[in-house]
Design a protein around this nucleic acid. Sequence first.
DNA 1: CAGTGAGCGAGCTTCCGCTTGACTT
Length: 774
Amino acid sequence: MAKNLVIVESPAKAKTIEGFLGKDFLVKSSFGHVMDLSKKKLSVDIKDGFIPKYEISPDKKKIVSELKKYADAAKTVWLASDEDREGEAIAWHLVNALKLDEKKIKRIVFHEITKSAITKAIENPRGIDKNLVDAQQARRVLDRLVGYELSPLLWKKVKPALSAGRVQSVAVRLIAEREEDINKFKSKSSYKITAKFDINNDFGKSILVAELSKKFNTKNEAIEFLEKCKPAEFTIADIETKPAKKSPAPPFTTSTLQQEASRKLGFSVANTMRVAQQLYESGKITYMRTDSVNLSNLALAMANKEIKNSFGEKYAKTRKYSTKTKGAQEAHEAIRPTYFNVKNIEGDNAQKRLYNLIWKRTIASQMSDALLEKTNVTVNISNLKEKFIAKGEVIKFDGFLKVYFEISNQENQEEQKGVLPPLKVGEKLLRNEIIAEEKFTQQPPRYSEANLVKKMEELGIGRPSTYAPTISTIQRREYIVKEDKSGIQRNYNFISLKNDSITEEIKTEKSGFEKAKLFPTDIGILVNKFLLQYFDNILDYNFTASVEKEFDEIAEGQKIWNEMIGEFYGPFHNKIENTLEKSKKFSGEKLLGQEPKTGKNIFVKIGRFGPIVQLGDTDDDDKPKFAGLKKGQSIETITLEEALELFKFPRNIGKYEDTDMTVAIGRFGPYVMHNKLFYSLAKTDDPTTITQDRAVELIEEKRKKAKENIIKEYKEDNSVKVLRGKYGHYLSIKKKNFKIPKEMNPEELTLEDCLKIAEDPKNTPKKRFSKKRK
DNA sequence: CAGTGAGCGAGCTTCCGCTTGACTT
């Protein structure tokens, strides 16, 4: 057995490091945290100084016992978890979980996986930094208290199974507020003037395009301007040329990788992380969960060599970047290729594309500036004081642009600068055409997943390891949805002056098209309203930043962690108690109007199963009627007419095989019910207009499909069937499903076989987490 | 999945941050 056991967090890291160290060292990984608070209970002793009660995480029991075996046999245990708050806590938990003798342990840290960094770390061990551990405990306990006291309050006051937390609730707030901004937004229009001039000078013929420095608010002003241009003379008043430069962006962090992969490759945040993980595990890139833009000296040297080889000496420029992100912990390097001379890799398409993006971005970050020449040409109008301006841009030296071009975030970047024709000051220009185009101001854009990550990082909310999971949590809770929105056709005025006549046209454009953007749901909006009303401090965009400051003070030994938690918890818990006692159920109920026939009130609100409309008051003699909202409808925007429509279900649409068919809208969308069986409508079917014939078609379709999935039936007992499902073959007996053992051939099962399978408890399906609510 | 919504009451849900596989009805 090896004399030395080194424990790191990630198995891929363990493998690499083992190669650097001699055979006296055994390197194992803890797979992240090994101890945590129990999921089932609060596990914080509030009365006695907020002492947390840790347990070995259920899924880590095996790893812990394995590590303990190695640790007991080793002379020295080197705790090499990451150099940040969480890493320090992992080291401390390992001491407790493995019951390590303090004399036997050494804590080492390194933030790059290079041989020299590891060797240096081994030469400079230290003890566990208890202050840093305490900062982590404060973070952990705060999050637990907030999450586990707010969530149950929501269950009581809003809806069961909801959740709230320091990070997720702020993410939802961002999306809800953006939607509010969009609803409030009123588009304004103005007129942009562009001129095309014919050039005919010593250098030949060409065209100069220039834009007026001023925009007009009304059509009349624009026409008035064009009228004045009719007799005017146009002269070049000034040509200004100045050098400019562009510098490359720093190498990727988790957040910037997610943003660029979204923009350039169309990857979702989760997809980016999955593919990056694969690249990391196969040794092609460094660690993918990082907030650091730092590159190791080894990496800098490799990049420099690669650039000189591929592009030449003058393209290389070694750069050190430093982070500007709030609360960055920088335990790792930036995300970079492991070997810079590998430009392309083996792998699937997604891996190749993501690797290529990382390679280019990292290489570009070590390349020279691009040198540009920017030119501004001013054109005078003889009878007006406004000026036309033409802008040109020429690349004198491409530098890093040779490999990498960062797409900016702005959506409409129609302005493209190019090369201007050769011109002279004083030169007279011939007016070819001047146009006035009506332009509308754009509504604020909805967040994409990657833009949300960017914003969260700016606010210091969440960490590289949690961006993707947080986004899926708030989608799973149905606070937000990712959807496309088709744009709307819009008319705009287009006025043109050519020769001596002005013509007016109405053109159409499509605007507001959005793909894979985040929309708040009714429940998301409601929960956000509730939290803002009662817990505005937690939802404050600066909340995390201010507690982070206190965590830092704890880490530096200037503050006691449980005192800090106490100061927070007192007022917070009071608010919980108060709200529990005083506030009524928070359903977001809104009176829409009255039903024309009966005069009964119609409300919209959130019911136990989501948004509903209600006909009649709750305390009326007869029970009120309820109906769920259709997909795409929302509490915020539904009208009285739409609500009345919803009460028309269930609708009878005729008979089939002598039984009534009815159309209704359920939790999973509109459906036809026939003979107590359900048939979902297709997305293209409209439940308000669906015909009898179409409903029959749906019924027949589903029957045919069900038949195709039957592999075996038994005459003796028709409740037993062997079926083909999403995950392969399975057995169905009286609506209960069973797994068919792998060694058995589903095609050849006899009825006896089937019954035997059903009796064996190991074939009964495990209870999966289901969203079922009674 | 399951096509409800009142009210009663049992029993369930939930946080953030570290890490990877396991394995689905």
